[in-house]
């Protein structure tokens, strides 16, 4: 047994600001708890019953006091609400240019894929001082990606993507917990976040199995699934060209315009009839059950890469 600290390690860019709010809330809690306890103790002693026949006068209540102790808590919770919401919104979106890593949760392990193709299980290597955005999904039940030292947490859902980002500010190894109960070995679904100096991280990347990048893996799945038959790069196919699509608005037959993000891409592969691009027919078959979540992630990584390309007729003839 060892003694315990009163604060978890602060190892991310947001940890300190969350802790400041936490400390303020602790101060409010201690102040009001102490206030109520001491008033009660004071009254308990001061107004203790001295003779069994005591009959104190009734006090009906006090309107000014009611206003006062409605107003004070209202102001305090308003302050906390604004403070915490500003903090939350500031950290809701990852900064531009964040490193993108795929995470897949399954009973009872974490699978990680780096953009360069390195795969890890129950470990996640990240460089110090660089924003990292995780795109996460689950193969079975709901899990939750929780790194106490970073003060970040997000559910990992089957059939959906959720995202989370952090920027590590301390070199070291930190706990990764599953914080959503997920079955028999929920407690064993833990891993490590390994934060390294950038050059050390580069060396780790290079030293890892030099597999193909996620985009290359995705391109292979894309080819093998027969996607290019219809999604021809120059836009002459039965399906829309996918060059320059990801990350841009897409017009639908319903007249709506939606953002082509991870969730849209995933839906279009699994439930192609849900949203039809303007000018095309609902003829694409569903790939539900034909791609694993990992393959799906790879395909989406490939589509992201295609999204950065300009829709030019001749580039990548295999489109």
């Amino acid at each position: 047994m060892q003694s315990f600290p009163f604060q978890p390690e602060q190892a991310s860019s947001i940890a300190k600001s969350v802790d400041q709010l936490y400390l303020f809330l602790t101060a409010v809690t201690l102040f009001f708890t102490a206030l109520i306890f001491s008033i009660i103790f004071y009254f308990m002693v001061k107004y203790r019953r001295r003779s069994p026949n005591e009959r104190p006068k009734a006090i009906e209540g006090s309107f000014p006091l009611e206003v006062l102790w409605t107003a004070i808590p209202t102001l305090i919770v308003a302050l906390i609400f604004v403070w915490s919401s500003v903090l939350y919104f500031r950290n809701a979106e990852p900064p531009k240019g964040a490193m993108e890593i795929f995470v897949t949760g399954k009973q009872w392990m974490w699978k990680v894929e780096h953009p360069e193709g390195q795969r890890e299980i129950n470990e996640l290597h990240v460089p110090l001082g660089r924003p990292v955005k995780l795109t996460m999904t689950s193969e079975d039940v709901i899990h939750d990606f929780f790194v106490p030292a970073f003060r970040v947490k997000k559910d990992v859902l089957p059939g959906r993507y959720t995202t989370l980002w952090f920027e590590a500010t301390k070199v070291g190894t930190f706990h990764l917990f599953c914080a959503q109960y997920c079955g028999a070995f929920h407690a064993g679904m833990i891993g490590s976040i390994i934060v390294q100096e950038p050059d050390e991280y580069e060396r780790w990347l290079a030293g890892g199995a030099p597999g193909e990048s996620v985009e290359q893996a995705g391109e292979k799945v894309f080819q093998a699934s027969g996607c290019p038959t219809c999604h021809v790069a120059d836009g002459t196919g039965l399906g829309p060209s996918l060059l320059g699509v990801y990350g841009n608005p897409v017009k639908l037959t319903t007249g709506e315009t939606v953002a082509a993000d991870d969730a849209y891409m995933r839906e279009s592969i699994l439930l192609p009839k849900a949203k039809i691009v303007l000018g095309y027919s609902p003829i694409m078959p569903s790939f539900q059950g034909q791609m694993t979540d990992e393959q799906l992630n790879n395909v989406i990584a490939y589509l992201r890469a295609l999204g950065k390309a300009q829709p030019k007729p001749k580039e990548e003839g295999k489109q």
Binding site: S17, V18, L21, Y22, L25, V28, T29, F32, T33, V77, I80, F81, W83, S84, S85, L87, Y88, N91, D144, F146, P148, R151, V152, K153, A179, Q180
Partner: peptide, 18 residues
């Protein structure tokens, strides 16, 4: 009072599920 920690978005992210 400890409920305030959980109503507040930024701290709930850390404390939820613990």
């Amino acid at each position: 009072l400890t409920g305030l920690f959980l109503a507040s978005l930024a701290t709930d992210v850390h404390l939820n599920g613990t």
